[in-house]
């Protein structure tokens, strides 16, 4: 009985050491990743400052950012996706999930001449369709005609409302300096580092939680052993 407990205690000790080492490694990685992020942000800020020098102080500022008061919604071009990876936390406990994040970019497709031709032909078709529908509506009662018109409008609206995706650089004008484009590229790289850093942070968070859980298990086992020893001693005496 005691040897079995001792073996379990040793296993927990080994797991605790593993978690502690892993946490130290992750802490080191987190600091390195944040320093890398700092470099990227600083370089990006320098590019923004150069663009500001060329375009004017007020032309590259928070004033160009969209505000919630404006009419149009702003759609994000970068999102993150969650993925759960399962790993063995301990030999006798169940598998534990660690969340990891993945960066996903939305590509903005510029309209090609073929697309614009297709769109104009569709619009012509719509223009042609309307008079016919009106002619047919004239034969129907007035109420039905009004309903049909509403349906047509709704169809057109739903057909011509794809999510409007715009490159954020266009907020700053059409002809922007090369430095602003470079700055944008650097901040895009910084976003990759952000997701990498977030993944390290999530793993560190999970490792610390596992360490504390194991430490609690070990303490409860120690207290149980002490109680057992106290109850066994009078019997032996």
């Amino acid at each position: 009985m005691a040897s079995c407990d001792n073996r379990k205690m040793n296993e927990i000790d080994v797991e605790l050491d593993k978690r502690a080492l892993r946490a130290l490694k992750l802490m080191n990685e987190l600091i390195a990743s944040k320093l890398e992020l700092e470099k990227s942000v600083k370089a990006g800020s320098l590019d923004l400052a150069k663009a500001r020098y060329i375009m004017g102080n007020r032309n590259v500022s928070a004033l160009q950012l969209p505000t919630p008061g404006e009419g149009a919604d702003v759609t994000p071009l970068v999102t993150v996706h969650r993925a759960q990876t399962f790993q063995d936390s301990n030999s006798d406990t169940s598998m534990e999930a660690t969340i990891s994040l993945q960066l996903e970019r939305v590509t903005i497709s510029t309209p090609s001449p073929d697309d614009s031709k297709q769109r104009s032909s569709q619009q012509q078709a719509l223009k042609k369709r309307n008079p016919e529908s009106r002619e047919s509506d004239e034969q129907k009662p007035l109420l039905d005609a009004a309903e049909d018109d509403d349906d047509n409008d709704a169809e057109e609206k739903s057909g011509s409302s794809p999510p409007s995706l715009q490159d954020p650089i266009k907020w700053f004008g059409v002809l922007v300096p090369q430095n602003l484009r470079q700055g944008q590229a650097r901040f895009k790289r910084a976003l990759e580092l952000v997701v990498h850093t977030a993944n390290i942070q999530l793993e560190l968070h999970a490792t610390v939680a596992q360490f504390r859980k194991l430490l609690d298990t070990k303490r409860s086992m120690q207290s149980d052993l002490i109680k057992l020893a106290d109850t066994e001693q009078p019997l032996v005496a």
Binding site: A62, L65, Q184, K188, A190, L191
Partner: peptide, 22 residues
């Protein structure tokens, strides 16, 4: 300002239907 302008240039900005910015 620079951090927000930079990351929004990177494409993280969103204003949803409830007029809430991120």
């Amino acid at each position: 300002e620079d951090t927000c302008v930079g990351f929004l240039l990177g494409g993280v900005g969103e204003i949803n239907k409830n007029r809430q910015a991120n």
